[in-house]
Design a protein around this nucleic acid. Structure first.
Length: 260
DNA sequence: CCAAATGTTTTCCC
DNA sequence: CGGGAAAACATTTG
């Protein structure tokens, strides 16, 4: 997916809909509850929040959540806040639409839906009143202390921990590799071997780098960008050829020289 | 043609 | 119970 950064970009775009009243809803029942069609019409959008990779739209009747899987995306008032997703199709076919929400002014003006979620691979999910209680600390709330608490008592590789949404919510494969690169930690390092200074470096990388990537447009804008990952090119810091390994079922790219 | 791709969940196994 | 590996989901891209 779309990682937490993309979810935040979409959350901000969706926030512009606050105050508008929903007229009608269509949902692909393979990925979301059909009851949304009955519950939402007549309600007004109050606001949009996000935890980790989940975006939640609050209305005065109910709230619904969107999770984007690997290839889900959102179009707001006909405009895609992120025009093209890496590792996904550049096309936007109507048959891939999974959720459409029209507001009363959309209907009056015969406009496209205010909210349209489109997802070719159909790995994303739409939920009603989503339970976010099982998610870990949000990426923008990570501090050295909260990160230490989240990882306490664990022994798994640090990258596996960063990808586990129950521990830290919002990091995906790209952002996890990125913050490990910046903090000088090898992805396979067990979390119980991390020194306090290393934990601080990791929390610092999450705190400092994610806002930069968010400003640049998301999780593909890091130092280890998709092109460098594909080529397994030289480490931008020291020129060492990046190494590729498999951790927690995902491809990890890392520098064997400066990441220890 | 083949492998891999921003993700999660489940199941099987140690 | 913790953790890993693999499969499943579905489609496009390199």
């Amino acid at each position: 997916m779309p990682e937490g950064l993309e979810a935040e970009i979409w959350r901000r775009a969706l926030t512009t809909l606050a105050g508008r009243t929903i007229a009608s809803v269509w949902v692909d029942e393979r990925v979301g509850p059909g009851e949304l069609v009955d519950v939402l019409p007549g309600s007004t959008i109050r606001g949009v929040h996000r935890h980790g990779k989940v975006v939640v739209v609050d209305t005065d009747a109910s709230a619904f959540g969107m999770h984007f899987g690997m290839t889900g995306r959102v179009v707001v008032d006909g405009v895609a806040p992120i025009d093209r997703l890496e590792y996904a199709s550049g096309a936007d076919r109507a048959e891939w639409d999974r959720l459409k929400v029209w507001t009363v002014d959309d209907v009056a003006a015969s406009r496209p839906p205010a909210i349209r979620m489109n997802d070719p691979r159909r790995l994303g999910r739409i939920s009603i009143e989503p339970d976010l209680g099982h998610l870990g600390i949000d990426i923008f709330d990570v501090r050295a202390a909260s990160l230490r608490d989240a990882l306490a008592g664990r022994r798994l590789p640090v990258k596996a921990a960063l990808l586990d949404q129950h521990l830290v919510a919002g990091l995906g494969n790209l952002c996890a590799d990125e913050v490990l690169w910046w903090s000088g930690l090898a992805p396979q390092r067990p979390v119980d071997t991390l020194e306090p200074a290393e934990l601080r470096a990791l929390a610092g990388a999450i705190r400092r780098r994610l806002p930069v990537m968010l400003r640049r447009g998301g999780s593909t804008t890091g130092t280890l960008d998709p092109d460098l990952r594909r080529r397994a090119g030289p480490c931008p810091r020291d020129g060492t050829t990046l190494e590729r390994s498999r951790i927690a079922g995902r491809t990890a790219m890392w520098c064997p020289a400066h990441q220890r």
